[in-house]
Amino acid sequence: MAIFLDENARVIVQGITGGAGSFHTRQMVQYGTRVVGGVTPGKGGTRLDDVPVFDTVRQAVKATGATATAIFVPAPFCKDAILEAVDAGIRLVVCITEGVPVLDMLAVKPIVDREGVRLIGPNCPGVISPGKAKIGIMPGHIHLPGHVGVISRSGTLTYEAVDQLTKLGIGQSTCIGIGGDPVQGTNFMDCLSAFAGDPDTRAVVLIGEIGGSAEEKAAAWVRDHMPDKPVVAFIAGQTAPPGRRMGHAGAIISGGKGTAKEKIECLKDHGIDVAPTPADIGATLARRIGHLG
């Protein structure tokens, strides 16, 4: 098992004819994801390699039975693209695009929730269940099928952590990049509760960063609801100055809140091992689960 995504997902790509969309469509196909179609308004009837392109998501769903979508459209059009996917009955929406206005997400989020759709992102690398499928832009080859869940607000830092795990021989059940924005479709808690119910996931790596209080909430949740699965964490931004956005829209210490220090202390207080440096994430997990590498 895995969470959110497995080999049965029938995936379309919104923005399939764009540079990033076409490149990553091919990468996903190569990884084994069942990409059944793509959508670019005005390009309906054409193909990208073997993948048929449609004008609307509704047409794509009708013709292909798609259940999931990867969104690569430019940020100003993401609100429309997400809502179009929801309206067409897509159940898993992965929005890769960076730069979506936060008020657009405030408008979208309640609708996604009401319809029971799983939205991951925006501004994220996506989701991968190693050996089964990937929807996103992460390099597939660094992953190894296994039993550790990975949740992260970052992209390349997640690859770093996954690479460490794989090199230690520790495989992953599902890795989710929830994105670096202040309002996310899926947060740490959503992922943790899904991992808690997944018998195939035996431990979790949580990679957080400065800003907000999602890590603190996750720490309390783990203690109360998932005492049987070890969790280790890393928090980026211990050296970040207050009041500055560190690349990600959500990575900001505001009003003295959301510092790495308070997050790390809170995680430790709740029994979660925190890696002292980003180079120790894999080793910290290995130690925690008694894996000898």
Partner: peptide, 29 residues
């Protein structure tokens, strides 16, 4: 560095080993 999270983490590890980062820089994807 490429990626905002990795860039922050790089600053952190420089500090961890006794150095002081001069900047945050994410060159993007």
């Amino acid at each position: 560095v490429n990626g905002a999270g990795l860039a922050m983490a790089t600053m952190d590890i420089i500090k961890h080993f006794g150095g002081e980062p001069a900047n945050f820089l994410d060159v993007g994807g």
